[in-house]
Design a protein around this nucleic acid. Structure first.
Length: 421
DNA sequence: TCTGGGGTCCTAGGACCC
DNA sequence: TCTGGGGTCCTAGGACCC
């Protein structure tokens, strides 16, 4: 049996751990740039605030109901996630971190027969150690475990556990779950299924296999198999190496000058290079794009991108910047109001196996030392404490982040204060 | 005025080879 | 008038995830 443990309203719960006055209040966490609502407390959901709604469309509602609003604080959420995962991994023999707030656990070799009771124990331990509430779904496959987790949240909120260990209990949640809420079925497949007269998961599992293969490819077929109790999705206890690494952001305000886009892109390139070094990989090509704001119908639109080969695979900030700046020189056209830029480094290869170019020199060794020093300093004092000249901060392009909480767990200067009476 | 960011996998079709 | 066939590799685009 497989358990899927999922943190409840994770970002909101993280904020609550450090501010008890937030309990029971409606809370919303916004995406980067304070753009959309991406996490909501139960109280906020009850007000009808939907996932992904732009902030400016719900601003009145937020004020009217005194909703507490936060900018996203990924430093805090990332660290809280690490803690939750660490606690859970201590309690089960085999686990796979699936996302910042979810983890699959293999429950097949546990020395307990009552899995629901075991799950309740895990919930309680995570709460005690981290302050984060979680829900647990248990079932024979990953897709069913995801469904059981959702079912637990919807139908057994207080218990927070659902164990689909019998035909009847599995059938109950298949009858309850709409096709759109099945893990692996998105907007397009939902529409197809609806025209086929298929509304609930219980209908979907009965569709002929030929139809599913033809209309939803093997991906949909695997989902169907999983819902029928046959595992098709393998375990990945150690995260497979990344194939691409991307850093991109919308600007806090529209930008017209090339110089400012250069600064932004240089900063994103630096972030990509740092991520590459953390993964111990090098990139052999990069994709760079610039674009205007597609939502502004009144503005002339421009979107362009380019892929450049990197002759000798690299994770050196200055080296990658040379290429991304070249790309920008090709892409940039004056006269547009730019909204976003970004870089994806691709075709990653392990640091150790780089094919040296014909004209490669001892430069590489020196670069490595410089990058290591740069990473060491920045790890200790915060990203971009030491940076490359091109990143020079003008900041007009910087993210909006007007409601950010402290980095309570990773910066000494931002620790939560404790009042002693 | 204001609409996130970072990923993966699959397929179809073109280029190329023998 | 007749105009091979089979295989691999690569890429763009679609769909999905959190």
């Amino acid at each position: 049996m497989i358990a899927l443990i999922d943190c409840n309203n994770f970002y909101v719960s993280c904020e609550r751990v450090f501010d008890a006055s937030l309990m029971g209040k409606p809370i919303v966490v916004l995406s980067n740039n304070d753009g959309c609502a991406i996490a909501r407390s139960e109280e906020a959901k009850a007000l009808g605030i939907d996932m992904g709604t732009p902030e400016h469309m719900i601003r009145d509602q937020l004020q009217a109901h005194n909703v507490r609003v936060f900018s996203s604080n990924y430093t805090l959420y990332g660290d809280m996630s690490r803690r939750v995962m660490m606690v859970i991994k201590e309690l089960v023999p085999k686990a796979e971190i699936y996302s910042i707030d979810e983890i699959f656990c293999d429950m097949s070799n546990m020395p307990f027969t009552d899995l629901a009771a075991l799950a309740a124990g895990i919930r309680e331990t995570v709460m005690r150690c981290t302050g984060i509430p979680v829900s647990v779904g248990i079932a024979p496959t990953k897709t069913l475990a995801k469904m059981a987790n959702r079912y637990a949240k919807k139908k057994f909120r207080e218990i927070g556990v659902y164990c689909a260990d019998s035909k009847e209990k599995t059938e109950a949640m298949l009858l309850f779950t709409e096709v759109a809420d099945i893990w692996g079925i998105g907007r397009q497949h939902e529409l197809k299924l609806q025209t086929e007269g298929c509304r609930m998961a219980a209908d979907f599992i009965r569709l002929p296999q030929e139809w599913v293969l033809k209309e939803m490819t093997v991906v949909g077929y695997r989902t169907q198999m999983e819902l029928n109790g046959t595992p098709c999705i393998k375990w990945e206890e150690v995260a497979p190496a990344k194939k691409n690494i991307c850093t991109s952001r919308s600007f806090g305000q529209l930008v017209t000058s090339k110089r400012e886009i250069q600064q932004a892109l240089a900063t994103f390139t630096s972030a990509c290079a740092r991520k590459l070094r953390a993964e111990k990989t090098c990139a052999t090509s990069m994709h760079v794009f610039v674009q205007t704001n597609v939502h502004r119908k009144q503005d002339e639109q421009y979107l362009s991108s380019i892929v450049l080969d990197i002759p000798v695979a690299s994770n050196c900030t200055t080296e990658l910047m040379k290429f991304s700046m070249t790309a920008l020189n090709i892409l940039f056209k004056p006269g547009y109001k730019y909204h976003k830029t970004g870089i994806t480094v691709m075709n990653l290869v392990p640091e150790k196996q780089i094919q040296l170019g014909l004209f490669d020199t001892a430069q590489r060794e020196r670069d490595e030392k410089v990058m290591k020093a740069l990473d060491d300093v920045n790890r200790q004092y915060g990203h971009d404490t030491v940076r490359i000249a091109k990143q020079e901060f003008n900041k007009s392009w910087k993210l909006r982040s007007n409601f950010k909480s402290k980095r309570y767990t990773t910066q000494f200067s931002e620790l939560a204060p404790i009042k002693a009476k």
